[in-house]
Amino acid sequence: MKPLLAKDLPNFVKRFGNFVDAEIRSVEIISPTIMQLLIACQDTARGFNWLTLNLEFSVISDARLLEESKLSLVDMSDGISLINEDSTFAFGIGDYHNLSGIKNATSYIISSSMKYEEGPF
């Protein structure tokens, strides 16, 4: 897994088109402070080919997750928000621009660090 730095976050989100119409395949709770999300999305760096992206959030301070059985029903037309605010990474389903907005998302994760790994579709 590669660490995702705060300075690289805007280009990372842009590369995957804000994850519009992506599919969250699974959420795995590794420990009380580590979670992994598996997302199928398009990569602009690869001619919009689909790939699977594994996102790992560490040192989680807050989260609201959907049940695994409901993940396939989530409307992803607004994509995913990934922001860095006050040295904190925040993930939320939907289009949000700050940490307080993300906490209104149907599903969100707030963590101190983030890593990612690309895989085949």
Rank of each mutant, 00 (worst) to 15 (best):
S31H: 09
D78K: 10
D21C: 01
N49E: 15
I39M: 03
S113D: 03
K103I: 03
L66N: 10
V20H: 05
K14D: 11
D8N: 11
K7W: 09
T33C: 03
S111F: 00
T88C: 09
T44V: 14
K2H: 14
I39Y: 02
S112W: 07
I83V: 10
I24H: 08
V27C: 13
I93L: 05
H97D: 06
S77W: 02
R25L: 05
S61W: 06
A63E: 11
E67L: 11
S58E: 14
F91T: 10
P3N: 14
R25W: 01
S112L: 14
S77F: 03
V74H: 12
D86N: 14
S87D: 12
A90S: 12
V13L: 13
K14C: 08
L38P: 03
V20T: 15
A105D: 07
L99Y: 12
L4R: 08
N98K: 14
G79D: 00
I30H: 13
F89E: 00
D62I: 03
L73H: 11
P3E: 13
I109V: 15
A45Y: 04
S107W: 02
E118W: 05
N98G: 14
N11P: 00
T52W: 02
S87P: 04
S112R: 15
A40W: 06
G94S: 02
N49G: 10
F48Q: 12
G94V: 01
S111D: 07
R15T: 10
V27F: 10
F89V: 04
K2Q: 06
L53F: 04
V74I: 13
R46E: 07
G47K: 10
I29M: 12
L66C: 06
A90E: 05
I93F: 01
